[in-house]
Computed example of a mutant assay.
Amino acid sequence: MRAFLFPGQGSQAVGMGAALAEASQAARDTFAEVDEALGQNLFRLMREGPEEELKLTENAQPAIMANSLAVFAALTKEGGVDFAKAANFVAGHSLGEYSALAAAGSFDLPTTAKLLKLRGQAMQRAVPVGQGAMAALLGADLELARRIAEAAARGEVCTVANDNDPTQVVLSGHKGAIDRVVEIAKEMGAKRAIPLPVSAPFHCPLMQPAAEAMRDALSYVMVGDPVVPVFANVTAQPESDPDTIRNLLVEQVTGMVRWRESVANMGEAGVEEFVELGGKVLGTMVKRILPDVKVTSVVSIEDLEALAKEIA
């Protein structure tokens, strides 16, 4: 069995998608369709930068999705891969869940781009710059991360945002609390805590205004039945019901990304091969969770052609 994975924020880089677009008409069409939907030359920003502008949440989120779905389009339209037959499950990390849902046919591409642009803007607006922060705990499991978060909170918000793999958990909340996390993490048993270069504290209760914005936006959107089940971030379970998917996307804004559990549960369901489209971050996490599975990262046209030859 095979699962396709779609990366989240942090996978953006100036130059992303440029070589793929040169080699693939389907990729070029994807980037053009996203640009048209947003009324923005996002692909030029992806190709040329500046990096500071690309890193802005409202740009990074649709850009990462566009890159993943350009790979997906080239694989399915030009590589001859029948996605419904090739995939048993899909999953995406945070914003990547939208990419996964688009690949599975629950959203069309313009809708996905607009939702992620709005999501990025709403997340940025939810907490004034400088008031929130995030830190990655290395050498810490979920239980230790929760103890560190509780000790650092001191009346402020400090919660687990991402349970990524057995050795990496991300905390999110008020800046003061996250500063305390960095101070106390080592003495509490973590290898170290690294402040993350993010502009807002994602996946914590401070994001509630953004969750309400997404609830409103998603209420107007048609959610189709996915052609394969989508493992949801907040349940770590396969979901296929459109109304459930809609509600879980709202919960996801403030909820913990249960990535470690999602991957482990896919493994228990029989998945032996994981294919990451448009990035190389999730594959590393997968190998820490399930060391014996096959992991393939598809970024370049060469990666894509090799995979298409294998599974088409």
Results as ranks from 00 to 15, higher is better:
3 A>C: 08
7 P>A: 07
10 G>A: 09
11 S>L: 05
13 A>M: 05
15 G>E: 01
28 R>Y: 07
29 D>W: 00
30 T>F: 00
31 F>K: 07
37 A>L: 05
42 L>V: 04
45 L>T: 13
45 L>Y: 08
46 M>W: 04
50 P>E: 03
50 P>R: 00
52 E>M: 00
55 K>W: 00
57 T>D: 04
68 S>W: 06
71 V>A: 05
76 T>R: 11
82 D>W: 01
83 F>M: 05
91 A>K: 00
91 A>Q: 01
95 L>I: 15
96 G>Q: 11
99 S>C: 13
106 S>P: 12
112 T>C: 15
115 L>P: 15
117 K>W: 03
118 L>K: 15
119 R>N: 04
122 A>G: 06
126 A>G: 15
131 Q>D: 11
132 G>R: 09
136 A>K: 08
137 L>H: 10
139 G>C: 06
140 A>S: 14
140 A>E: 07
144 L>Y: 02
146 R>W: 02
148 I>E: 08
149 A>I: 11
151 A>H: 11
155 G>C: 11
163 D>Y: 00
164 N>K: 05
173 G>A: 06
174 H>V: 06
182 V>M: 00
183 E>G: 01
185 A>W: 03
187 E>K: 12
187 E>C: 03
187 E>M: 06
190 A>P: 13
191 K>G: 10
197 P>S: 12
200 A>M: 14
208 Q>N: 01
212 E>M: 09
213 A>V: 14
214 M>G: 04
217 A>S: 07
222 M>R: 14
236 A>L: 01
238 P>A: 07
244 T>R: 14
244 T>K: 09
244 T>A: 15
252 Q>W: 06
255 G>P: 10
261 E>Y: 05
262 S>Y: 09
264 A>D: 05
267 G>M: 09
271 V>G: 09
271 V>C: 10
273 E>K: 13
277 L>G: 12
278 G>S: 11
289 I>M: 02
297 S>I: 10
300 S>V: 05
301 I>M: 15
302 E>G: 02
302 E>R: 10
306 A>G: 09
